[in-house]
Design a protein around this nucleic acid. Structure first.
Lengths: 158, 158
DNA sequence: ATAGAATCCTTCGGATTTGAAGCATCCTGC
DNA sequence: GCAGGATGCTTCAAATCCGAAGGATTCTAT
């Protein structure tokens, strides 16, 4: 225990500082653009997008785990979006502890309206500044990161 | 005006979805680890780190721009960290509108204590899951992104 | 069967973030 | 000089997020 920490080497350091700073910057910018145009949060946008891919609905806990926020945040966000008519709550048969959030027709409609604006935002704050040649490595790296986050430990197939 | 939006092609799409979702997830995890261990926010940690590299202090607005948050957030955070004795406010000679935040000895000390814990967190939530071969591309991409964010428009050299 | 633990969601108080409004200081053109 | 605008920071109300506590449902071991 209490070993010498595994400090970053120069190669990692060179990647890390810009990644964390410009990452925070980028997420803030995407959030601001969505707020300005649609009065909606980047988190809400992500939730809606995920729900629009899953018409059967998703459990609250699953959404919380996806984005790494507390369960109470999802409860709150789904309630607000329910007030706006974008999603509904539903208890499916089976485990009655689960509550599934489901997108409504209005929610889908909003998603469609947000698409073009958001994709422009994504370009302006990310892709326009990143050379194409780096994309495969980015996709590879984040794909692995994604799987590591969303794979229950001890279930890595690979 | 009002052209067809520049949708993401398949290569971009494959990079984007994991990037945004696991990015949010990762930042949340880093934040949680720092809160658990030091009762401090990822943003505060970033501010302290940046101030520890600049003993002369930095203007509030400069910090806000770095992380892409509202100026009022910096005012609030610096006030709280001032209450904890981690930073001080100082008006330098010259433009008396500027207020410079400056790290204290206690702030530096906390930075030193956080270092080993945070670097482990960074490894666990990022580098441990990203192959080394992708690092150069990541560094390149985020370096360009960083410069695009922190370069006043019309001042791009090269 | 049933008690106790585990899981899933919600509620609630406190802390943080946002965005608009306000104050002080600096710059510009006259 | 000096009025008007621009810039930098702060203040304030409202929205959001966190984390602990609570309620309901399911699982596990006897």
């Amino acid at each position: 225990m209490n070993q010498e920490p595994r400090w970053l080497d120069s190669s990692e350091m060179r990647a890390w500082h810009p990644l964390v700073v410009s990452g925070m910057h980028m997420f803030a910018a995407l959030d601001r653009d969505l707020r300005d145009a649609f009065d909606i949060t980047l988190l809400d946008h992500g939730i809606l997008l995920m729900l629009s891919d899953t018409p059967a609905g998703l459990a609250m806990g699953h959404l919380a785990e996806q984005f790494g926020v507390e369960a109470s945040v999802i409860t709150y966000r789904i309630s607000r979006m329910q007030d706006s008519g974008l999603v509904t709550r539903r208890r499916r048969d089976g485990d009655r502890r689960h509550v599934h959030a489901q997108i409504t027709r209005a929610g889908k409609k909003l998603c469609d309206r947000m698409g073009p604006v958001h994709v422009e935002s994504v370009r302006r704050h990310f892709f326009d500044h990143v050379p194409r040649k780096d994309l495969p490595a980015l996709a590879d790296a984040y794909d692995r990161l994604y799987r590591s986050q969303h794979t229950p430990p001890g279930e890595e197939t690979q």
